[in-house]
Amino acid sequence: MEYIIIFIGSAFVSNIVLAQFLGICPFLGVSTKVGTAVGMGTAVIFVMTLATIVTWLIYYYLLVPFHIEFLQTISFIFIIAALVQMVEIILKKSVPSLYQALGIYLPLITTNCAVLGIAILTITKEYNLMQGVVYTISIAVGFTFAIILFAGIREQLELTEVPKGMRGIPIALIITGILSLAFMGFANLV
């Protein structure tokens, strides 16, 4: 039950993009086609979950015992960068088909502030490992859901006459605003 509440709360109510403002860059950048949005979403779910597990272990079994919590930001960003590289190499060697599908999105993820943000938030929220993993997966599913929805809208937008000054980023932001408004309707779910 607790896990269901975490899931709904983090995937829909406080959607990472639409309510917490994390991961906006890939959200705006890789959302012109539904296909690429699905790819990016899957890659994010994968990397984010891995990153949270590793950073959680490092934080509680390395940083806390040695009282060097102040190295949190530095160590987390390096772990994430290294992890992305590793995932890329392993996928390339062992699961080439998956690599072909996700490969190009992986380098983009290092600079995705959502991954680092969620790793840090899992620590600040004092979740245990299991809660942290559920939390991260829900957040990532929420991200995927939002980016696919948004890509769908943008595909339609291609066919619409948008006033010149509003083309590109401005109209994308305004649509995100309306989407975010719609997601506020989920607020009473938990």
Partner: peptide
């Protein structure tokens, strides 16, 4: 709230353009 951030930002970018 969150939607307001996106809306204001969108219009500001358009205005700057």
């Amino acid at each position: 709230l969150a939607p307001g951030a996106f809306l204001v930002y969108g219009y500001l970018v358009a205005l700057t353009n």
